[in-house]
């Protein structure tokens, strides 16, 4: 197991001194998870392998952009894997616009710096809260995040009315966000 702090230390070691051992530890933990995430999204094993490989190399390349006060390591790696998947799906004739440049890096200038200090705690709380969701709620959330499906597609697949899917996601996210917002206000 890799804690959020350990993972953040590893990414910083890559940034500070191109630490290959740190990369190997991260890769052993996240490489297979990223591949599993991509396969849940409908990629075949070979494509998932290739995209996961690209995502992990991106973790190396972009290590200096990682800011542990802004996002937990797992969150950062999730966004890189997600963006790689988007790039892969959108790849047409032209060079893809590197989505991570706008999906990850920039934040509003007015953003309250104090709040971002809580990124690590937010992540830990989210992880605990996910454990407390009902199976019904967890399945819609997983589908939304991993299977690259819009609400409408999830509703069709689960043979549930769109309103039901929306309210399940809303309930689950509502519980998460209630707790997060309370913590951010404190």
């Amino acid at each position: 197991m890799l804690t959020a702090d350990e993972a953040a230390d590893l990414i910083q070691a890559i940034a500070a001194r191109q630490d290959k051992a740190a990369f190997a530890t991260l890769f052993r933990h996240y490489g297979p998870r990223v591949k599993a995430f991509l396969m849940r999204g409908g990629s075949d094993s070979e494509t998932a392998q290739e995209v996961a490989q690209e995502a992990m190399i991106m973790v190396w390349r972009k290590a200096a952009s990682f800011d542990r006060t802004r996002a937990a390591a797992a969150t950062w790696i999730y966004t890189i894997a997600r963006n790689k998947r988007i790039d892969h799906l959108r790849r047409t004739g032209r060079p893809p616009i590197e989505t991570e440049d706008w999906l990850t890096v920039f934040s509003p200038e007015e953003e309250d710096a104090d709040k971002s200090v809580l990124a690590g705690q937010t992540y830990t709380r989210v992880k605990e809260l996910l454990g407390g969701l009902s199976a019904d709620q967890l399945v819609v959330i997983q589908k939304a995040f991993f299977e690259d499906k819009t609400h409408t597609a999830i509703a069709e697949e689960l043979k549930l009315p769109l309103g039901t899917v929306k309210s399940r996601i809303r309930l689950a996210l509502g519980r998460l966000r209630d707790v997060l917002e309370k913590e951010q206000e404190e």
Binding site: R33, T75, T79, Y123
Partner: peptide, 8 residues
């Protein structure tokens, strides 16, 4: 995104 990270 933190939820996505936690799921991952």
């Amino acid at each position: 995104q933190a939820v996505g990270g936690a799921l991952l």
